[in-house]
Design a protein around this nucleic acid. Sequence first.
DNA 1: TTGGTCCTACGAAGCACTTAGTATTAAATA
DNA 2: TATTTAATACTAAGTGCTTCGTAGGACCAA
Lengths: 131, 131
Amino acid sequence: MRQKRKSEFLTEVELEFMTELWAMGQGTVRDVLDHLAPGRNLAYTSAATILRIMEQKEFVTSEKQGKTFVYKPALAKDAYQSKTLHDLSNKLFDGTPASMVARLVNDKGMSEQALEEIRALLDRRLTENDS
Amino acid sequence: MRQKRKSEFLTEVELEFMTELWAMGQGTVRDVLDHLAPGRNLAYTSAATILRIMEQKEFVTSEKQGKTFVYKPALAKDAYQSKTLHDLSNKLFDGTPASMVARLVNDKGMSEQALEEIRALLDRRLTENDS
DNA sequence: TTGGTCCTACGAAGCACTTAGTATTAAATA
DNA sequence: TATTTAATACTAAGTGCTTCGTAGGACCAA
C-alpha cells in the first residue's frame, strides 16, 4: 500500500535531510547520516524511515545501486526557497514581499556589507529591467 | 496543572489567530472567531481552546472583563516577523539573510515599484550608518 | 424560579511527526 | 558453505497539533 502522502512543505527533520542532499547532490541513508551535525545521534533505521517517507511525499527520488538506495532531491533548493518565502510572505507579511525585505533590512544583525550587497543586487535587477 | 508549554514558534492555527489579534489589537474568543476567513467553520470551543493554549505558551495574555476573557498579543508582529525570518535564514539560507533577499529580488512577482521602495529603504539605512 | 444563552474548563479522538526496534533479505567473507 | 555484515520494510510508541463535545457556572428574561 505505497500511497503518496503528498504535502507541500518539508518538516523539520525532512529539511535537515534535504539540506544534506542539496549539498551533496545525492546520497544514501549512510551518506546523509554521516553528514548530520555532530551531536545528532540518530539511529540508522530512523534515517532510513525518514528518507522513505520523503520519497512517498515526492520530495526525493531514489534509484537502487546494488543493494542500496541512492536518494536525490526532487526539487531544487532555489525552488523550495522561493516557495517557502512566498508562503511566509502570505502568512506573515500580508502578501507583500517588499515588507519582508523591509523587516530584514531594518533589523540589526545585518552587516553593512550585506546591505551593500543587496543594494548592488537591486541595482543590477533594476537596470536589467530598463534595458 | 497549569504548566507552561513553552515553544518558540506559532503553529499554523495559532498564527491564524495571532494575525487577527495583531490586527485588532486585542479580542475575545468571539471576536477572533468572527474575524476568521469566511469559509472557516470552527467551533466556538475550538477557538477557546486554541486561545487558552496560546496563553499557556505565553503568546498572548488575558484579562477578564466581566465574565469574558480578552486576549492580547504578548509579542508584537514586528518582533515575531524578525524572529521568523532569522530562523528561516538559518534553516534554509545558510544563515546569510542577504541570500534570502537575493532570492526574493530575483523571483518574479515583485513589482518594479516594490524594488524601488526597497532600494530607497536601503539607501536610507546605509546613509544612517554613515552618520 | 426556571429555561435559555453564553462563557470557561476539561477531556478525548484523530492525525502527523519523530524516533527506533524487530524481522527479513542480500551480499561479503572466512 | 556458514557466518557476519549491512541494507530495507514494517510496526509501534510517544508527542504535539487540531478539533470538538460535554459539563458546569453565571446571567438574563419570562
